[in-house]
Amino acid sequence: MALEFLKHTGNPDDFFKILPVDWQEALQLVWEKGSATSEIFVLKEENKVIAGGILFKDITADMQFFKEEAQLLLASKSYYIGYLWVLEARRGEDLGSLWLKSLKQYYPDNYFWLTIEEEGLIRFYEKNNFKLSFEKECNSEKEWLLKSI
């Protein structure tokens, strides 16, 4: 069973359908406005998407919490990773780490950043060479921004 990391050029629903329903709903508007400057990368096994994420190269609606930081990072050709997801049945196999490593190999001259809403994910991203850069709280909601190093 060979894993393939590839830029997904087919129907985006092949990736979208593995995401949680609330993510799919949030992504509809983001994808409508940002698909022209975004790329989906997936891990496939036996022609089935088992993990993936989206690389955004422009401001999206879900970047509002860190809008100023997003503008600066994107202007410096640091790309935003969004909607990174691994099928729950495949968790614990380091597929998220493989996806991140493969993306960095695909774009060796670029840096990446992302935001998270679950504090417990900070350790995962630090293990994958990201550094916590900002933390914001608004209306008792917290988000963290991490950048690749």
Rank of each mutant, 00 (worst) to 15 (best):
M1T: 12
L3P: 00
F5I: 08
L6Y: 05
K7M: 05
H8D: 09
T9V: 12
G10E: 00
N11E: 10
N11M: 05
N11A: 05
D13E: 15
D14C: 11
D14W: 10
D14L: 12
K17P: 02
K17H: 12
K17I: 11
I18N: 08
I18V: 09
I18K: 02
L19T: 03
P20Y: 01
V21G: 03
D22E: 14
D22M: 09
W23K: 01
E25N: 14
A26V: 11
A26P: 04
A26H: 14
L27V: 10
Q28S: 13
V30W: 10
V30S: 14
W31Q: 07
W31H: 01
E32D: 14
K33I: 12
G34E: 07
G34C: 10
S35E: 14
A36G: 10
T37Y: 11
T37V: 09
S38N: 11
E39W: 03
E39Y: 02
I40N: 11
V42T: 12
L43Y: 04
L43I: 15
K44P: 08
K44N: 05
K44G: 04
K48C: 10
A51L: 09
A51N: 01
G52H: 05
G53Y: 00
L55R: 09
F56N: 11
K57D: 02
K57G: 10
D58C: 01
D58W: 03
T60D: 09
T60S: 09
M63R: 06
F66L: 07
F66I: 08
K67Q: 12
K67D: 08
E68I: 14
E69G: 05
A70D: 06
A70G: 04
A70K: 02
L72E: 14
L73V: 06
A75M: 09
A75C: 06
S76Q: 10
S76Y: 04
S78H: 11
I81D: 00
L84D: 12
L84I: 14
L84E: 13
L84K: 06
W85N: 15
W85L: 13
L87P: 00
L87H: 01
L87D: 00
L87T: 02
A89T: 15
D94Y: 12
L95K: 03
L95Q: 02
L95E: 06
L95N: 07
L95F: 04
S97W: 01
S97E: 09
S97C: 03
L98F: 08
L98V: 01
W99M: 08
K101D: 08
L103Q: 03
K104T: 09
K104F: 12
Y106T: 14
Y107A: 04
P108D: 00
P108T: 04
N110A: 14
Y111N: 13
W113C: 00
L114N: 02
T115L: 08
T115A: 11
E117H: 11
E117Q: 15
E118H: 13
E118Q: 11
E119C: 01
E119K: 15
L121V: 01
L121C: 09
I122V: 06
R123K: 15
R123M: 07
F124R: 05
Y125I: 00
K127H: 13
K131R: 13
K136P: 12
K136W: 08
C138D: 15
N139V: 11
E141S: 13
K142E: 06
K142I: 06
K142C: 05
W144C: 04
L145M: 08
L145C: 00
L146W: 08
L146D: 04
K147E: 15
S148K: 05
I149F: 13
I149L: 13
